[in-house]
Design a protein around this nucleic acid. Structure first.
Lengths: 350, 350
DNA sequence: CTGAAAGCGCTAACAC
DNA sequence: GTGTTAGCGCTTTCAG
């Protein structure tokens, strides 16, 4: 039970050494003799000493805090955001960093505030849009940073993301390989495309290009998610393209409703229709029919973002200088076949 | 574009005033003449000055940071956690505070670390268990704090939570009023009860007590969530209590599977069976059948936690000293009737 | 391998 | 209404 604030000076006195020695024992920045180190450590323990974060930040101009900016958009799937955030927090701790949580509420200015004040010495931005208002401010701060998501003009920024173009292509290939020739895409909410969130657009680009190459017809419809919206979307799709034999879903909150509605229509998955999803592993596994899917590697993205940012903050680490250069780090997608995709049914005689 | 670090001294020089004047302009802690204030503000703008967080923390012994500790448990429903976290972050900003995100990964020690180092000057703990290992450490730090959830021994702590006992009672009352006499409860994962998370236990206490008073029979079964687990749980329930005419669900990931399976069994909701859920508003509204439910007021809980903690950190605010006393703040539950609950069916002649 | 001492940038008495 | 100044607790040269 420490009463008042125990300072480094207290520890030094108690251990019979100078303040700087205590500091160096703590930081390991110069070698200390065994006995001295032990006396200091003993004093630290006995006094219950904890270095003061503010003083340390002031003297060293490093806060050991990474800011994580996570805009709160109701149309984004929450668990993925959360998984990224937790991966960031956990990885950060393993590098001795803490994480400051910033929401979108405060606007792009928050980037400048935490950057310029030295509150954080590095930043990670989530949910990056193609034209993101935070990027100019980010560049100005001059702080190490990593983006989760890739903007239209990534030059000068370090980015991590799933390779969504490859993801779209992969889904099409899988279905085309099974003989499907008419595919419908149930996409994210219209707002996601309007806002020009990169991943949604890139998925469609990759998907459409590959579909063209493979001679597959694609109908793409955004969807808000939920039963009501999905019912309408599904009606439209089946109306416009009655021969549709496969769905690619990129919208977590449309997954369950889609399976449920297909079942009500008496269309069996995968015998009558195939479904492939782009979603977190857990959603795919827990669905009414285990889904063939491309996983969103949330954990890996969070982890890498921290590591990239740390490499920039501490050049000359294990990764060498190379890691400090801005780069776009696209994770290769993996498609896992589960129960929801199968051979295209023989064309109906109609 | 500010080149090096602009300091308060730079601003003072530029404005032709002393450092303290600049400081007071910023803090508003003493009155400044109009002209002086303007010259200072102009200088701040021209120089692009941003106060250094570390220096400020050291000099004032306040970091203006609230730590939010959010254990990552795979069996807790993520969106609720997230909504609380975002509410905390948003409310905190409106009080000029930032939020430091702590996961459970680091263990209870994290509480001491951020408390004792002055990194945070107040803490909020989520997902509090009845016997929570973090509480002794929290008490030791002596920092203002608020718990989201209520421990077995709340004396000395400030807590916010939904009144889960009342919630359980409310669900039973609603169903009893509709004539149901045999109710099954689909609960949280077994691990949640084993861990002695307060809310799950309290819900059952309130629920069982009221059921006793009203002469309603209750069967309670934990459930992991997902289709596989729910199928097993439902089978057991219908086996043990074939006359069950109503379900109370306290497990977000069991909601959709339950509705889906009942439908497959040909049991119509609410004609044949009623369903009442304890879950976030959005889950209830988006379900295949809009659910009669008691909402989990995540946003309100986050907001209050911050306000309680601020009241303790700054006694003498608008709330007066009363707010600074430890207290348990239980939010009254509200049951919203939607489409999933109706009169009990006439007992079958069997 | 260890000490002494000069700040880091800001706040908050204390003066006037 | 404004200026002076003494720290806040730690890091990091510079000496030895």
């Amino acid at each position: 039970m420490e009463q008042q604030m125990v300072t480094l000076a207290d520890v030094a006195r108690q251990a019979g050494v100078s303040a700087s020695t205590v500091s160096y024992v703590l930081s390991g920045k110069r070698s200390i003799s065994g006995p001295t180190r032990e006396r200091v450590e003993e004093a630290i323990r006995r006094l219950g000493y904890h270095p003061n974060a503010g003083a340390r930040a002031l003297a060293s101009s490093r806060s050991d805090i990474i800011a994580l900016m996570m805009p709160l958009r109701t149309d984004m799937y929450v668990p993925v955001m959360m998984e990224i955030a937790l991966a960031v927090a956990t990885t950060a701790r393993s590098h001795g960093q803490d994480v400051l949580l910033l929401t979108g509420e405060e606007g792009p200015e928050a980037v400048r505030r935490v950057g310029a004040s030295g509150l954080a010495d590095a930043l990670i931005l989530m949910d990056v849009e193609l034209e993101d208002a935070r990027l100019p401010l980010l560049a100005q701060t001059g702080r190490p940073a990593a983006l989760i998501g890739v903007p239209a003009e990534p030059a000068g920024f370090t980015c991590v993301d799933l390779d969504f173009a490859a993801t779209g292509a992969l889904c099409v290939e899988h279905l085309a390989g099974l003989g499907h020739r008419d595919i419908a895409v149930v996409g994210e909410a219209a707002a996601v495309y309007e806002r020009r969130t990169g991943f949604a657009e890139r998925t469609m680009e990759g998907l459409l290009r590959r579909a063209g190459e493979l001679g597959v017809r694609v109908l793409h419809r955004p969807c808000e998610g939920g039963y009501a919206s999905l019912t309408a979307t599904l009606d439209r799709i089946q109306d416009e393209r009655p021969r549709t034999t496969a769905f690619i879903v990129q919208n977590e909150s449309a997954v369950d409703p889609l399976l449920s509605l297909l079942r009500r229509q008496g269309r069996a998955v995968p015998e009558d229709v195939s479904v492939v999803a782009v979603c977190p592993e857990q959603v795919a596994v827990q669905a009414a029919v285990p889904l063939t899917s491309v996983a969103i590697p949330a954990l890996e993205m969070g982890r890498r973002a921290v590591e990239l940012v740390m490499a920039k903050a501490r050049p000359g680490g294990a990764d060498g200088l190379a890691a400090a250069a801005p780069q776009v780090d696209l994770l290769a997608p993996t498609l896992t076949v589960r129960a929801s995709s199968g051979p295209a049914p023989a064309p109906s005689p109609g």
